[in-house]
Design a protein around this nucleic acid. Sequence first.
DNA 1: CTTATGCCTAAGCGCTCGCTTAGCGTGCAG
DNA 2: CTGCACGCTAAGCGAGCGCTTAGGCATAAG
Lengths: 212, 212
Amino acid sequence: MSTDDAPAPPTEADLLDATWQQVTPEAARRMLIAAVQAFAQRGYHATTTRDIAALAGMSPAAVYIHYRSKEELLFQISRLGHELALEVLRGVADSEDGPAARMAAAVRAFARWHAEFHTTAKVVQYELAALSAEHHAQIAALRRRTEALLRGMIADGVTAGVFAVPDLTGATLAVLSLCIDVARWYRPGGRRDPGQIGDLYADLVLRMLGAA
Amino acid sequence: MSTDDAPAPPTEADLLDATWQQVTPEAARRMLIAAVQAFAQRGYHATTTRDIAALAGMSPAAVYIHYRSKEELLFQISRLGHELALEVLRGVADSEDGPAARMAAAVRAFARWHAEFHTTAKVVQYELAALSAEHHAQIAALRRRTEALLRGMIADGVTAGVFAVPDLTGATLAVLSLCIDVARWYRPGGRRDPGQIGDLYADLVLRMLGAA
DNA sequence: CTTATGCCTAAGCGCTCGCTTAGCGTGCAG
DNA sequence: CTGCACGCTAAGCGAGCGCTTAGGCATAAG
């Protein structure tokens, strides 16, 4: 094997390690990553704390050393996951490109994130209903910021006369919906890799917004 | 109260009764409708057979008079629900309009269905993972027919030179995804009623497809 | 050495789950 | 009237759930 082959695509484990690097100590991170995998595959309610502990290679009681409850584990995943997704959009929002290029970059990055980190994204986007009322309210606030960021980018394009959008709120809803739903249908090893999905969606959205 | 007021919008119960009219006997239908409501609100795994029976006004054991198991109840909901959704698309596919008008009508009807019958649609679209392998395979076949129907309508438009779509499969995926996701975010009493969502989405999709 | 602290496991508590069993009441055939 | 089939309920079984408790084994300070 030569050393100058194209780099192998990162494994699922690599991606999860990178995603959750900030969680410490290491045992708490291992437990959280195990929970993300189990929640994504089976859903929150179908996952037992014994499943999570076994995936993390520890005893069932070890869950409660680092987390108060199974719901608290979901909340930490959801909170940090939403912040990561928000960061992806913010990284693009500050660019000095024109509104159309910036919007294309935002959709490309956001859709791509939902494919590449689909395991995390599935939990973040589809397990909200299992959160307690207090935790759900905190997450809802983060989601409103995401929506506002995207709406602002579309509004800028309209103001600049680059986009032709009869219904700003409706268009924002549709763009957000399109990107989020990637986490539902994406399968690794499918015909499109995450980068290609980002490119495809950036193009489709620009047309949807009537970009000049 | 005059008798020529605008007709009141149908209640949730009206919609569910209309949706599941074909299920007999009446007690089996009541049980199934109760299951749809519970599965949509809490999710399949968070719903107990006691929840379902209580909603239907019967004892926990009554579930098993008409259905072999809780999973069989989900399967019947999923199978009939997918057939209803498919019927919505088929009702439009046979029209003799041009490709663009037909596609607009399809998206309008399909998106609208996912809003109006959002309770049913949520179970149909988001609880597939809880089905047994055999049942899941049957449902997957129905989903492939839905996708093929939509792809055919887009392909017709491309052939006729009315749509400009660089990636047929990708565009089909995006359109389907957009409509399905309506069931996730739609809330009755929101700023858009189901008809308006259908109109909005028909317009957005035509632009996405580069309709002449 | 002793003692204290932090991370972990073995064991298990109380509860609720999906589902079964035994039997009741009603309506209809003979 | 009798007898049986059907749709239902009351009661409960075995299993598995989320989470707790008691204690073991390191490390490190005194």
